[in-house]
Design a protein around this nucleic acid. Structure first.
Lengths: 186, 186
DNA sequence: TTCGCCATGTAACTAGTTACATGATTCC
DNA sequence: GGAATCATGTAACTAGTTACATGGCGAA
């Protein structure tokens, strides 16, 4: 039931792990590139602000988990490219093996449902159907990605697992919301 | 896709709203009492540290959303009892009507799944089955509560909606995890 | 000419966390 | 004798946020 991503004695934060992981999967990147990579991969369930990415990267360098190389460019702004070190790879592995810090708690939506009797019934109904809409568009989005990659594309297995998780979640939410919607209407 | 509970120009934080909501539902309480109330009600999806509760309450008083009354007790420690003001009730209502700040993002578990190819297959399998176990025990817990209250107990409707949400979620997770478990075994 | 992409950051802030501190009373 | 309950807080910290700042290049 923990919320804060906590640095358990030498461990990584989830954001650090995400960045190291993307460096491991996709090779050396700039902060800007990592931001793009995040948005098109783990962005559905882990989307740090870009300033946070720029804050984390130098930290990784000073703790020896990554190296920075300055790249001078003529036509574009100069950039810093970060590369995973063996120590970084080890730290990432430790993080991957460690039990996940709690998620699923902190759900302001449910707080509104729980307290729904204090507001107008219409307000609750609006929240519920908005939730259903969100879940449906999440589902559509994930299905579109599935379609774009073929099922069983190589190198996509673990990513597809997260999409399937998202789909199961979305379907659970739409099912719940439809039922509640009907009840509130009656 | 926001994570941080944000104070949108005069708005409440979710923790403030939770406390005001419990004061509205259950009447005047001490910080200690509110902590108990949180644990036995919204604790499944919103569980602030007790120090946070003690930090928030005086803030509610200074912004006129609650009043504090000191109660001197002979046999127990003295306490402060907080009571909702009309302004507090209004602020709560505004919060209840407002669209929920994003949740569902920030899922370190999925980060581990996504990066599962970087660690040993056994590690991923362990995470997945741990997740299934958690979901199953959540389900059991929620069903136990449902059984304890009878179905359709008065004053329990909105709370029961959150339990049903939790059940749908738990079932989605167990379904996903069982399928993935089988795949990883093969 | 305007807009979007590339590219990196600073400054100010905040909602939350853990660890620590205190002390009487009541129940086993 | 020891543990749980009642009851409230301080101190130190942190991972994240938004708003702001800068500026050249290429394409419509």
């Amino acid at each position: 039931m923990r919320t804060t991503t906590q640095r358990a004695t030498g461990g990584l934060t989830a954001t650090e792990a995400a960045l190291l992981g993307l460096l491991a999967l996709r090779g050396p990147q700039s902060g800007y590139g990592l931001k793009k990579a995040v948005d098109t991969s783990v962005g559905y369930f882990w989307k740090p602000a870009k300033t946070q990415i720029y804050a984390v990267l130098p930290r990784l360098v000073t703790s020896g988990l990554a190296t920075r190389r300055a790249i001078v460019q003529a036509d574009r702004p100069d950039k810093s490219v970060y590369r995973l070190t063996p120590a970084g790879r080890r730290a990432l592995n430790d993080w991957l093996e460690a039990p996940p810090e709690g998620d699923g708690d902190r759900t302001p939506f449910l707080l509104r449902v729980y307290l729904g009797g204090l507001a107008s019934p219409e307000s609750l109904a609006r929240h519920v159907s908005a939730r259903r809409d969100e879940a449906e568009s999440l589902k559509a989005e994930l299905e579109a990605i599935d379609a774009r990659k073929g099922v069983g594309a190589e190198g996509d297995y673990h990513a597809s697992l997260t999409r399937r998780y998202g789909l199961a979640y979305a379907e659970a939410v739409t099912g719940w919301a439809s039922a509640v919607d009907r009840e509130l209407g009656a």
